[in-house]
Design a protein around this nucleic acid. Structure first.
Length: 218
DNA sequence: CCCCAGGCCGCGC
DNA sequence: GCGCGGCATGGG
């Protein structure tokens, strides 16, 4: 089972070029705070809509933990409206900002926050927590998303809960955050453009390692 | 008109 | 522990 995963991994990394995949336009200080905010805004939401919300936050000088923690919540809501679910996400951003400041500074937060801390606040589940740990804190937590689940189920016939799927990656691959970022991004790209809900197998370049293709094409 | 998007929470079972 | 409905905007 791990061998099949490694083959799939190699294929994806060979086909997609996903270095520096997480977009960071505004480069707030400290760096990577923008990633934490984006990780919440993108929950079940198209990245295009997230970009609009990030731009609005930046323009309002709200891409900043202290201000997010103290400004009237209606201002946050107005900025992030394009990203959808804006009432609950505004509260989530507030919770994130307060958590970050509880470390004394955002820099300390990025350096020493752990998974449990992140999961303890309302608005951060396992995927968002791992996204922050991986892309903002640079720690080797592999992110499992809807695309990852779908591709694993189709190609490798593997199903499981979040931790089970994550463990497969953690046990099969070297614990390297660079590799995890790159690989997670390839799953997103492949799931978004090729292995969609209705898969485009005729455009797929990894059919050789895909159980779905090999068994449906008899 | 429909469906979907880089999930999470709160609830019932 | 798992499944479900609600949350909301913008693009195809």
């Amino acid at each position: 089972m791990e061998k099949a995963l490694i083959l799939l991994t190699k294929k994806l990394l060979e086909i997609y070029n996903c270095k520096n995949w997480w977009p960071m336009k505004y480069k707030t200080k400290p760096k990577k705070w923008e990633v934490c905010v984006g990780a919440i805004l993108t929950q079940n939401t198209n990245w295009r809509n997230v970009e609009k919300a990030l731009y609005n936050l930046y323009s309002a000088k709200l891409l900043d933990a202290k201000r997010l923690a103290r400004v009237n919540i209606s201002k946050i809501r107005a900025c992030i409206k394009p990203a959808g679910f804006y009432i609950q996400k505004a509260a989530y951003l507030r919770n994130l900002a307060k958590l970050a400041l509880s470390f004394g500074s955002v820099k300390n937060f990025l350096d020493s926050v752990n998974r449990e801390d992140l999961l303890s606040i309302n608005g951060i589940g396992q995927e968002t927590a791992d996204t922050i740990l991986l892309y903002a804190c640079n720690k080797p937590y592999f992110v499992i998303g809807a695309y990852t689940k779908r591709i694993l189920a189709r190609c490798l016939m593997i199903k499981g809960n979040y931790i089970e799927l994550q463990n497969i990656f953690h046990l099969s691959l070297p614990k390297n955050s660079g590799l995890y970022k790159n690989l997670h991004a390839t799953f997103v790209e492949h799931g978004k453009f090729v292995c969609k809900k209705l898969p485009k197998c005729e455009e797929c370049k990894i059919t050789k390692v895909c159980n779905h293709f090999l068994t449906s094409n008899i």
